[in-house]
Design a protein around this nucleic acid. Sequence first.
DNA 1: GCGATGACAGATTTCAATATCTGTCAGTCA
DNA 2: TGACTGACAGATATTGAAATCTGTCATCGC
Lengths: 198, 198
Amino acid sequence: MNENVVLTPERILEATEDVLRRFGLAKATVVDVARALDVSHGSVYRHFPSKASLREAVAKRWLERLNAPLAKIAEASGPAPARLERWLRTMFAIKHKKVSDDPEMFTTYLTLAREACKVVKAHKDGLVDQIAHILSDGVKQGTFQVTDAKASARAIFDATIRFHHPAHAEEWSDPQLATRIDVLLALLLKGLEAPRKR
Amino acid sequence: MNENVVLTPERILEATEDVLRRFGLAKATVVDVARALDVSHGSVYRHFPSKASLREAVAKRWLERLNAPLAKIAEASGPAPARLERWLRTMFAIKHKKVSDDPEMFTTYLTLAREACKVVKAHKDGLVDQIAHILSDGVKQGTFQVTDAKASARAIFDATIRFHHPAHAEEWSDPQLATRIDVLLALLLKGLEAPRKR
DNA sequence: GCGATGACAGATTTCAATATCTGTCAGTCA
DNA sequence: TGACTGACAGATATTGAAATCTGTCATCGC
């Protein structure tokens, strides 16, 4: 058995994703995961203390994959306003793509995330930090006027929640979505703008 | 029987609210409503074609009650920016109060509203119109710079969704809620601001 | 020794029989 | 006549017994 390969947390996560994809969140059991790996379910419990922690690890992996392209934009150079806009539009695009590509898997991960709220909170904090980083750049460049970058970053995150929080995913098929995003981003960027030098 | 009073849609709605309050949404049946009114359930079906339409009517009543105080603010006179801020803060306060006063009834109405999405859409449209009305006033007064009042009103509605949409009700107990609202409103108001005359 | 196993107790889920509800309508009563 | 009733068919919800799952641990084999 066991395919002559060591059983690693990584392999278990892989198998868990498979099982989730095949059976859906509600029906995926750790017995299924063990079966997919051709080991007893006791072995899985050697690497993860509980089903919840296994799911949490899967959620974390998923969120980290979402994070990567955004972090790159946040760290880039160039004018902050354009970068902020690109960052936000990229975030929206990533989420909207996930929903339209595989709605079933999206709801699976959504429910997964609701359970692993600690991981999600850390993820959100990371995103807000990225926005704050861009805002700070803008202040240095003189293009943004912001007293508390962190607080303003949170405000940006809050203000755009309609377009990135999964709770609103059903509304993302609105044909006016693009326009609504345009108007909101214009409003926010104007609100952040530093007064022109004379 | 029947308490010597005519059976009106109004009385049925009243009784339905009672039943919802006592049994909760999942267990409230039209048989229960009929029992509360001391009539047969067939009589209820004389006034409402289905259970769904009865629930829809209850949802509509509820939303109309929420709407009243806001409409008053929207129609008032005075500087638009202050009025917009008051309108938004009032909307948040109404929702937040509902949640903290009677969380159980709130979730009941929330689920009710999810089912009666047509009624909710009309309600939302009404709210956006109210914002648009305030924005138009601001443009006339020269305090707001806005090209499309309706589109901007929607943007304001979208941007504040975190603080009024029931999907985010769990986060309303955040101790930093007031600060987050302050920062967001300041950002939005600055974004709407018309340039000062020289 | 170390990773894996499989039997086990208690918790959870499934499933099918049973009960209740929704919506209709022919008939009652005032 | 027209508001109301109550019996009915089909849909939905409840229930409790049986099956499955989670998490533990004494034991096995390398």
